[in-house]
Every structure is written in C-alpha cells, then in structure tokens.
Nucleic acid binder design. Structure first.
Lengths: 150, 150
DNA sequence: TTCCTTGCAAACGATTTGCATTGGA
DNA sequence: TCCAATGCAAATCGTTTGCAAGGAA
C-alpha cells in the first residue's frame, strides 16, 4: 500500500525537486502520476504507450532519468534487460514483486511487518558471515500469475 | 556451495548438451569452467576480459546463449542493465546474492536450510493472497561489501 | 557429405546526447 | 533576461545475426 495519498506524495516530490534545483513541469507531473498509478515497475516503452500522443521518447527518458537521479524513482531491469522504473521506497514504502515467469508481468506485493522482520534478520545475519554490512533486500517471488494459470 | 564437484558437473553438462543435439566443444568447455570458477554472476565483458586472447565477443555471446537455452546457465541483468550469467540452480544449487551498492560486486551466498524454508513459506503464503502460484524466489541482499567498508 | 560451430562484419534496439528552440520565473 | 526544459535527429553501446569458412561425425 502507498504510504501516503496523492496530494501528500506530490508535495513531497515537488519539494525534493525544488531542493535539487529542478522544476516540477507538467511533463514531469504527468510521468509521476503515471508511476503513482502503476501497480509495479514499468518500462519506458509501456509508459510511452500510455501517453503516446505528445511525449517524445527522448523526453520521456530524460524525465525518467531526472526523477531517478533525484530519488523519486528507482530503476531496475526486467528479465529481457529493459529498464524498469517505479516509485522509490521512501514514497511507495518497502515492498517486493510477484514476477510471472509465463507472461513476464510484475506486480507489487507487500509482506507483513512480522515477515519482513524475520527476513531482514536472516539477511543481516547471513551477510555478516561474509563481512558484508546488509542495508536492505530485494525479493522477487517467481511463479504463475492468476491470468496465466486460468 | 556447489552441489557436486567439477568432474560430475561436467558430465551433467555434457549429457544435457548431447540430449539437446549440441556439441560440447572446447570453446564451450572453456566458458563452462569459467562460470564454474566464478563466485557469482558474470557479464560477457568480464568473461571476455579473462579470455581476451582468442575468443571473439560474438562467439562468446553465442556460447552463452547456447548454454542458457540448454539450461546450463541462467541469465539475469545487473543494475546497469548488462546481461549477467551464472550456473543454473540444478547445477549450482539454490542460493542468493550479496550486492554491494558501492562497487557493484555480486557474490553468491547460501542461506541455511531452515531459513530457506521459512522464506519459501512466506513467499507462497503471500503470493497465494493474490491468486499467484509461487514457484521460487530470488533474493538480493544489498549493502556494503568488506572491501568497500575497509 | 552433412551439420554444427566459428569468426568477421554488419545490423539491431534500447537508451543517451548535441544542439537549437521554447518557456517559465 | 537567463537558465532549465524540450524536441528532433544523430550517436552509443551491449547484444544479435547473416553469411561464408572450418571441423567433427
């Protein structure tokens, strides 16, 4: 679940961009709202498909880069290597992903606090045995989504 | 830890390639041994750096593709989007990764059986609430490696 | 001989960048 | 006025592919 509602999030984004000396333009607002509405990581191509009308790919990429550099979005990569973007954790809240190995869809999923705590503890303990200081973890649950199972 | 030792693994690879009607050539053996020796996922560029002498990138890519298609290797993507390859689970055994957010290095890490069981159960339970049938999971523990912390 | 494999060079596709233009504060 | 933001086209870079030559069965 999102940690705050629309207006609040937008205010947080606006102020972070301001602090970075970057304008909150209509184009950026548009991309931000798309990401807010998305239920998981999205590729530039998918986003472009939605706003295909008047938003050049290069501008979209530039917007995604600015939002990533300012910490609004986080960038990752799907199984085929295409870049995927999603709201970063301080806006969206900590979560994981359900990845369908059949159709490739990716959905956000929230674990319960208790489960998170257990997993975090395991991660820290195991990492420590290698002189590694754990800061966080990323989990992809792989399987078959409802659509594909039907 | 690897589930079997060198000779055994090679025999498994050889027979799987044979079943697929693919030859176990010196070039493929060479790449396989590199992957066996690697302690984590490796990019084509990294591998090429090791055998730079006489192995064209295109041949290396083709070898990696053949080994992936036959299930010897698994392909994923690093934070910058470059393709990474590693021995697949039936050869290497189930494991996870320690990812250093500073230098980008990726090391294999084995969780204890008990921890795996707990995590697997959580993943299945959570996935089920979304009509998703969990088959497995992938965990990246992010943090600072010993080298970078020093 | 018949396929599979290899190397080279060319092709690809996703992403990035140079540059001139537009627009907001 | 001034600097950031935009659009377009061209450039990049990792990766893939066509094609002809080399080799094993």
């Amino acid at each position: 679940m999102l940690s705050s509602s629309g207006k609040e999030l937008e205010a947080m984004v606006r102020s972070r961009l301001f602090d970075a000396g970057v304008r909150y333009t209509p184009g950026r607002a548009r991309v931000f709202r798309l990401m807010e509405a998305a239920g998981g990581p999205r590729s530039a191509a998918e986003l472009h498909g939605i706003v295909s009308d008047d938003l050049p790919l290069s501008s979209l990429y530039r917007t995604l880069m600015v939002l990533s550099e300012t910490g609004i979005l986080e960038k990752s990569h799907g199984p085929e290597g295409v870049a995927l973007f999603e709201l970063s954790e301080w806006l969206r809240g900590h979560h994981h992903h359900l990845v369908c190995v059949q159709c490739g869809s990716v959905e956000d999923i929230d674990f319960e606090a208790g489960d998170e705590q257990v997993i975090g503890a395991v991660a820290e303990r195991v990492a420590a045995t290698r002189g590694f200081r754990a800061k966080g973890h990323r989990i992809d649950v792989e399987g078959i989504c409802g659509e594909c199972a039907a």
